[in-house]
Each structure stands twice: as structure tokens, then as C-alpha cells.
Design a protein around this nucleic acid. Structure first.
Lengths: 356, 356
DNA sequence: GAATCACTCCAAAGCGCTTTGGATATGGCA
DNA sequence: TGCCATATCCAAAGCGCTTTGGAGTGATTC
């Protein structure tokens, strides 16, 4: 025993595999495997001996081998489309991943990231499927009529979409914020404050979320008999500079907008900069209402929120999406799940009655 | 042939494995494998037949099986420490990953993410090693005297640190910005503009980068005979609200600082808000100089930078780190590589001569 | 006392790939 | 013609794990 111990002690920082562990225990690999994986056909005293030894020798099953044998990868893939024209990294991504990561960690799953140039998308998903590195994937950044959904359904890889895709009629699993409802409500809030010229600084409108937000914005205008003025609408990547430029231009007009609805707090910060620069006062002269993903490094103030905002935690969405996917993988024949999150309307210090 | 074709056509959306491919070709698995992997002992006409068939049948080698057979995982791990007290997601992370992802994609590597609660770090790295899911890892967020470096060296898992660790005397591979030099230069720049009371809004100073930045800041002050005033120094997580609060407090004093040095553009935005709110004018009354990671969604203006900044692209660092690690994996016995990036000092519209 | 059963355990096959150690055929050379 | 490289291909072992299909004990039942 002590000789064996010494032999195995040497391996301490090395990797011990199942065979070595079973030799050390004078048991078959079968029994050891079963003991470790909680199968019933093993004596409880044997099991605890095995568990103890596994602990002592610092045994960890090799993921690849386990995956090969079981057919499961114990990993989830996140596929992030990167377009060549817009090579911005979605700032929301980190928080989403953090949320999802928690869920994976609890379930013993790994998280795999793949960046996919958008012209290679179809091939990329087939690759992922065939190479078998993951048991399911989270689809990021769905666009209108997103072809990935049909593709993934066809090749039979479980997936959950973060967002939805207008015009896709297949059933599929998703988790999304009620973007349309939120923006309708937010715009209505501004209208009720007396604003008549409300600008929309939206994200790229081939993205589904942005499309829905515009619909919500337009619905509110229509409901109150206000005109839909394309001159007050922008659709770009949601950077700070974009907000600044767009607001600066609009505020230099003869007839200025009195309020801005932004798709991102970062864009809203740019708008605020333009407002200051124009010598105007936020909330008094011009109001801002923005969507707020509740990013951890961009908290919308503390006690009193900086911006009046439609808030929905993307980190929470990440956790929920991950758990949804895990349960889908556990019950493959289950019908798709969906989850619609409502954004809170938070009143902050960036809105006020329309300037007369 | 057409019968076979039909048989395999059915598999089109399915997964074809090596065995099926070799049956289809009437060749042995050995030959097919060698043809695909570019070994010389196979006839060129055979090889092209194989390549063609692989293309037609949409063959992709199973990653797990390949990994098991070769002992390589063809994947890189990114280990992100998540502390319980500070559960902020580093906003820099997305861009770094995007940069690294490109390099991995080119090399055919996968990217694996692991979130590790910081009290479990040691165990986590051993896990990763033993489970064999990755060939190497990128270490994020090094602190002063980071114990992970010794651990990883000991267990023999190739790694590259994004950043460095003061007080660690082992040789190891890293890529870092010259934080100390940059902040010394930046602070000196402000001093030369006549500023005497310069505040430092730093990140958490157990983090190595923040520690070095403070050293640089202090060095510049000392070099010019200025006092180091702890009342002008803060160390927290680099949020917007942090910048706002700290600046608000300092600007409400009898004797205000005339300039702020920030560790993050996000914090700088908070400082700017406080300045506005105090009725002061940026650059005229109070100056801001900030580090700028050149995040894609937080461009520091366009033609004229918003903030005077020490700029260093974290995305570029990601690409470089990844390539460094890949080459380390390719040549395991190679000495550690290091790379020190210099930050550019960019003059923007947030600095001016000290108010008299 | 034989048959049955529950309880433990094990040998071996198999997951999909790579790679070692030949086998076979072909051509050049003496 | 016979011999030996050379070129081309293959069978089978092995990577580390799970899982199927028993085998070997005692204890229980008739």
C-alpha cells in the first residue's frame, strides 16, 4: 500500500486516469466508473473508498474521453456573428455571458465561444454540429427573418435564441425583452410629458430588437396622432459617437426635437454630450429616455437614476437563456420554450415636461 | 455508386464519420485520415478524390475523437476570475475576446470560457488541466503576486497572462501595456500644463495594472516635487458612478483638484458628469486625462478625441496574446515570451492649462 | 438440497479518430 | 532474371471513458 501510495503520490500534480485509479483501488474500471457516477450497483462502502481515492489522487475524468463515450459534450456554444462592416463587439455580451456562465458552472457545463464572420454562418453551424464540441448553442444577435433558426432546426442541434426573429414561423426557443411594448410605453411617457418632436436613435434595424423598438415607438406616435418623421429617426451601431453626432445635428436645426429615445445607454451618453455642448440643459430643454441593459459597469446611477430608462438586465437574461437551453438538452423532445421579459420604466433625471 | 451516393445523400444533414467516408471511397480509414491531414504517403490523385468526397459528404472530424487520439484539444481556455464582492464584468473583456477569437479562428482553435469564483481558483486550474479540454489558457486580471502563475507553471499548462504580476519572480509569458510609463507620462503632461492638484481615480489596486498606474502617477508627482496626497487618490471598480461620486466629492471641497487622471473612459464619463453638474467647464476649469482601451463601442470621439487619453487597443492585445499562446503551444520548450505595448498619448478636448 | 434472487463486481466492446508496423505492388539496377 | 528501394495502401492498437452482458457470491425460498 505505501509503495502504491508512493507510486501514485508522484503523480499528484500529474494526471491520474481511470485505469490508474482502478489499479490503485484494486477494482475494475467499471466499478470505479459506476461508483463515481452514482450508479446503484455498487456497495456503499466501496463507493466511499472510491470517492476518497479519487479525491486523494486528484482524479478528474478526461472530458474528451467522457464525451466520446457518452456522446455528450458537456459544453454549450455561444456563436457570435461578427460582420465585416460593423466590427463592433456588442457591449452587452460580457454581461450576458457572465449570467450564462453561472448557470453552466452549476450544471458542470463548459462554455465555448465561436466568432463567425456573417457570410460563413451556415457553414459554421454545420461545422459545430458535425464536430460535436457542444450539446447546444445560444444564438446571439438575431436579425429579421434569421435563416439560422431554420438551419439549426433542420440539423437538430438544440438552441435558444437571445431575442426573436420577426418573419420566422417555425417554433423555436427564445428569451427576449418586450422591446416593442417597452418602447411604446417609453415613447408614450414622453408624449404625456408634452413632447411632440421625439427623435429615435435606434440600433441597426435589420437586427430584430431594433426593428421591434421602432415599431413600438411608431405605435405610440400613431396612437397620439403624432407624425412619423423619418428625419427624426436614425439607425446605426449604438456607440457614444453616434449618439453625439445624431443629436448634435438634430439640435442644430431650426425646429429641434425636444426629446430623444435611445436604444442604448451608451448612445444616450453621447446625446447628453451633444446637449451640453449646445448649451442646453438636460431634462429642462431636452429629455432623454433610453433602454438600459443594466450592465454592471454602466449602472444607471445609484439612488436616483441618471437616465429615465427602460431597464432589463441582460445578465439575468443570460442566466435564464442558459437554463432554458440546459433543460431543453435534458428533455430533447420537449416543445420549444419561450420567455418574454418586461422592461421596467424607471424615472430618472433625464426627462421633464416639454419645453414650451 | 449511385446507390452509395443515395445512401450517403441521406446523411447530408447528418454527420458523416471517417468510417463511412472511407467505405464510400473504398479506402481504409488510415488512408483517408492521412489524405485529409496532408501526410505524404498517399497518392495525389487519391488525395484529391478523398478531399472531394469529404467536401461532398460534408465530413468534419469529430473534435473529441481527434483530441483523444492526438492528445491535443485544439482549444484555448480563457479563465475569468469572478469575485463575489465585485461582480462586475470587465467591459474590456468583449473586445479582448474578439481579438483573440480571430487568431483562434485562423488557427482552427476553439475558445473555451470558464468563470471561476476567486476562492476556487487553484482547484479550477487543476481541473482544467486534468480534464484536458484545452491546450493552453489565457490568464485574465492578474493581481499583485498572483499565485496562479506559479500554479500553472507547476502543472505545466501553457499560458499567457494578459497583464503582469508584480512580485512574481518566475519567468512566464505575458503581454501588457506599459501602465506605469503611460501614467507617468500622462500625469507629467498635466503637470506641464500647470496642474498641481491632480486626482487619481484608479481601478482596484490589488490588480496589477492599477498598482502600476499608481506608481506611474506617483513617480510623475515626485519628479516634479509635488506632494502625494492620499485624499486625491481613489481605488475602486471602474464604473461611471464611481467616477461621478468621487469627482463630485472632490469638487465640492474648498480646495479642488484641477485635473483628474482616470483608469477608464467609463469612469471619465462619470467625472465629466460631475463637472457639468458642478457648473464647471471641462478643460477650462477642470481637466480629465484617461486611459482608453479603444473599445469598439466607446470610441473616444472621431476627428478630435473627446478625452485626452492614453490609448492602447485591448483588442489588439487579445490578438497578440492569442498568437503568442499558439506559438508557445507549438513549441513547448521555448522560453517564455513577453510583449510590452506602449500606450499613445492622445490630446483631446478634455485638458487645458490649470485654472489660475 | 436445488433453484432463485439480490447484490457486487468484472471483462470486453465501443465511441471516432490517429498512428504504428507491416503488406503489396512497382520500377530501377546489377 | 533476381533483388532491393520506393510508393501506396491497410489492419489493428490505442487514446480514456461508459456501458452491455455476464459471473460469482451468499442468502432465501420451496
Amino acid at each position: 500500500m505505501s509503495k502504491l501510495m508512493r507510486k501514485f503520490k508522484a503523480l499528484w500534480t500529474e494526471t491520474v486516469n481511470l485505469k490508474q485509479l482502478s489499479e490503485y483501488l484494486n477494482l475494475s474500471q467499471t466499478t470505479v466508473s459506476r461508483a463515481l457516477n452514482g450508479y446503484p450497483e455498487v456497495n456503499e462502502t466501496t463507493r466511499s473508498r472510491v470517492l476518497k481515492a479519487a479525491q486523494d489522487l486528484n482524479y478528474r475524468p478526461n472530458t474528451r474521453a467522457k464525451g466520446l463515450a457518452t456522446g455528450r459534450a458537456l459544453a454549450i456554444g455561444h456563436v457570435i456573428p461578427v460582420s465585416n462592416q460593423h466590427e463592433m463587439v456588442n457591449p452587452v455580451f460580457g454581461d450576458f455571458i457572465a449570467g450564462a456562465g453561472e448557470a453552466y458552472a452549476r450544471a458542470g457545463y463548459d462554455m465555448m465561444l465561436t466568432l463567425v464572420p456573417d457570410q460563413e454562418e451556415v457553414r459554421a453551424y454545420q461545422d459545430i454540429r458535425a464536430r460535436g464540441t457542444v450539446d447546444g448553442i445560444i444564438v446571439h444577435g438575431p436579425v429579421i427573418n434569421d435563416e439560422r433558426i431554420a438551419l439549426l432546426s433542420r440539423i437538430g442541434l438544440p438552441f435558444v435564441v437571445h431575442g426573436r426573429s420577426t418573419d420566422v414561423n417555425l417554433p423555436y426557443s427564445w428569451i427576449d425583452v418586450n422591446n416593442r411594448g417597452a418602447f411604446e410605453r417609453g415613447t408614450q411617457f414622453l408624449i404625456e410629458l408634452g413632447h411632440q418632436r421625439i427623435a429615435l436613435l435606434n440600433g441597426l434595424e435589420h437586427m430584430d430588437f431594433a426593428f421591434r423598438r421602432r415599431k413600438g415607438y411608431e405605435t405610440a406616435l400613431l396612437n397620439h396622432g403624432l407624425p412619423i418623421d423619418p428625419g427624426l429617426m436614425r439607425s446605426e451601431e449604438m456607440t457614444e459617437v453616434y449618439g453625439y453626432r445624431a443629436a448634435k445635428e438634430m439640435l442644430s436645426r431650426e425646429i429641434k426635437p425636444t426629446a430623444f429615445v435611445c436604444s442604448s445607454i451608451i448612445t444616450a451618453i453621447g446625446v447628453r454630450r451633444a446637449i451640453h455642448e449646445a448649451g442646453l440643459v438636460l431634462a429642462r430643454d431636452v429629455s432623454i429616455l433610453t433602454h438600459d441593459d443594466a450592465l454592471s459597469y454602466l449602472e444607471n446611477g445609484d439612488d436616483v437614476p441618471i437616465f429615465t430608462a427602460l431597464r432589463s438586465s441582460v445578465r439575468y437574461a443570460g442566466t435564464e437563456a442558459a437554463e432554458m437551453l440546459l433543460s431543453l438538452i435534458a428533455m430533447p423532445k420537449h416543445a420549444p420554450k419561450t420567455r418574454l421579459l418586461e422592461a421596467e420604466l424607471i424615472i430618472g433625471r433625464s426627462t421633464g415636461p416639454a419645453a414650451s
